[in-house]
Computed example of a mutant assay.
Amino acid sequence: MADYIGDLRKLIGTRPIIMCGANVILLNEKEEILLHHRVDRDWWGLPGGAMELSESLEQTAGREVFEEIGITCGKLKLFNIYSGKELYYKYPDGNEVYNITATYICKDYSGEIMVDLTEGRDAKFFPLNNIPSNLSSPIKGIIEEFILKHRELKV
């Protein structure tokens, strides 16, 4: 598959870009959330990543989950779309992005967790009342919003 962002970076270097992508809140039968422990920083986050040319956001979400953790997503439900200065991120290599992120919820998935060790250290489910404190900065607000809305729906 092409590497749109990599090709773009060859042209513009580390300057800030707008990057569109998707991530997925995977929930198991206990309503625990799957988090992915990244290798580039000691942070937990949601599996997901950048959109490639010609992909839909749903295709991006499914591809990224499969590439990062070996899980195949079934039905995806749009949770929210995030953008703005809160989703600014500077990668350890100096690349800067302003993310536009579509976050999906998925309870319909198959496969066993198999972490791609070039991107992650681990992936596992966490109870919503025991989320690690070292969350990825762009993902922290998304997870906090999900937990708040999840609690409201359970009341």
Rank of each mutant, 00 (worst) to 15 (best):
A2T: 11
Y4G: 00
I5A: 12
G6N: 10
D7H: 04
L8T: 04
L8W: 13
R9N: 01
R9V: 02
R9P: 06
K10D: 11
G13H: 06
T14D: 11
R15S: 15
I17F: 06
C20N: 10
C20T: 08
N23R: 04
N23G: 15
L26D: 03
L27W: 04
L27E: 06
E29A: 05
E29D: 11
L34C: 06
L34N: 01
V39H: 03
D40N: 09
D42Q: 13
W44F: 14
P47F: 02
G48F: 01
G49W: 01
A50M: 08
M51C: 13
E52D: 07
S54Y: 11
S56L: 07
L57K: 07
Q59R: 08
A61K: 05
A61R: 00
G62N: 11
E64A: 14
V65F: 06
E67G: 01
E67R: 12
E68M: 05
I69Y: 00
G70C: 05
G70N: 01
T72I: 14
C73A: 03
G74S: 07
K75P: 00
F79Q: 05
F79R: 02
I81D: 07
S83G: 14
S83L: 07
G84T: 10
K85V: 14
Y88E: 13
K90P: 04
K90V: 12
N95C: 08
E96W: 00
I100M: 11
I100S: 02
A102V: 05
A102Q: 05
T103R: 01
Y104T: 02
K107Q: 13
D108M: 11
Y109I: 08
S110R: 15
G111Y: 13
I113P: 08
M114F: 13
V115S: 05
V115N: 02
V115M: 01
D116W: 02
D116H: 07
D122K: 06
F125C: 01
F125K: 03
F126R: 04
P127W: 06
L128I: 12
L128R: 14
I131T: 11
P132G: 03
S133V: 14
S133C: 12
S136F: 15
S137Q: 11
P138H: 11
I139A: 13
I139D: 13
I143G: 10
E144R: 09
E144L: 03
K149N: 09
K149F: 08
H150D: 09
K154G: 07
K154L: 06
